[in-house]
Deep mutational scan, measured.
Amino acid sequence: SEEEIREAFRVFDKDGNGYISAADLRHVMTNLGEKLTDEEVDEMIREADIDGDGQVNYEDFVQMMTA
């Protein structure tokens, strides 16, 4: 549901600035027990970053979650 997606976005957007940065993503993945290299984190950001601004905004996140 849209509310679940919004809630998930809030979990990833640690600093609440409306964007998921590589640092935000790394933090959440580490908490989930996933040890990722910087390259892996950057690749995840690139794949999710639809508009190419280097971070994942809510619209990018929705597209990723509903793809």
Rank of each mutant, 00 (worst) to 15 (best):
S1E: 05
S1P: 06
E2H: 09
E2T: 08
E3S: 10
E3H: 12
I5H: 02
I5C: 04
I5A: 03
I5G: 00
R6N: 02
R6A: 02
E7K: 13
E7C: 10
A8S: 05
A8Q: 08
A8V: 04
F9R: 00
F9C: 06
F9N: 00
R10T: 03
V11A: 12
V11T: 08
V11S: 08
F12M: 05
K14D: 04
K14A: 08
D15C: 07
D15I: 07
D15V: 07
D15P: 03
G16C: 07
N17L: 08
G18Q: 01
G18C: 02
G18D: 01
G18N: 03
G18Y: 02
Y19P: 00
Y19L: 07
Y19W: 11
Y19F: 10
I20D: 00
I20P: 00
I20V: 06
I20Y: 00
S21C: 07
S21F: 07
S21H: 07
A23L: 09
D24E: 09
D24Q: 08
D24C: 14
L25Y: 02
R26N: 03
H27G: 05
H27K: 13
V28A: 10
V28K: 00
M29R: 01
M29H: 01
T30A: 14
T30M: 14
N31K: 14
L32M: 08
L32A: 03
G33D: 10
E34V: 15
K35C: 12
L36H: 07
L36W: 15
L36I: 08
T37V: 04
T37L: 05
D38E: 12
E39W: 12
E39T: 09
E40W: 11
E40S: 06
V41Q: 03
V41W: 14
D42R: 07
D42F: 10
D42T: 10
D42Y: 10
D42N: 12
R46D: 05
R46Y: 06
E47C: 15
A48V: 10
D49V: 12
I50H: 11
D51Y: 09
D51K: 12
D51M: 11
D51N: 14
D51R: 13
G52P: 13
D53Q: 11
G54P: 03
G54C: 10
G54N: 06
Q55W: 12
V56L: 08
V56C: 03
N57E: 06
N57W: 15
Y58H: 01
Y58P: 00
E59M: 09
E59K: 06
F61Q: 00
F61N: 00
F61L: 10
V62Q: 02
V62R: 04
Q63L: 11
Q63N: 09
Q63T: 10
Q63V: 08
M64C: 14
M64W: 10
M64R: 15
T66W: 06
T66M: 14
T66A: 12
T66S: 08
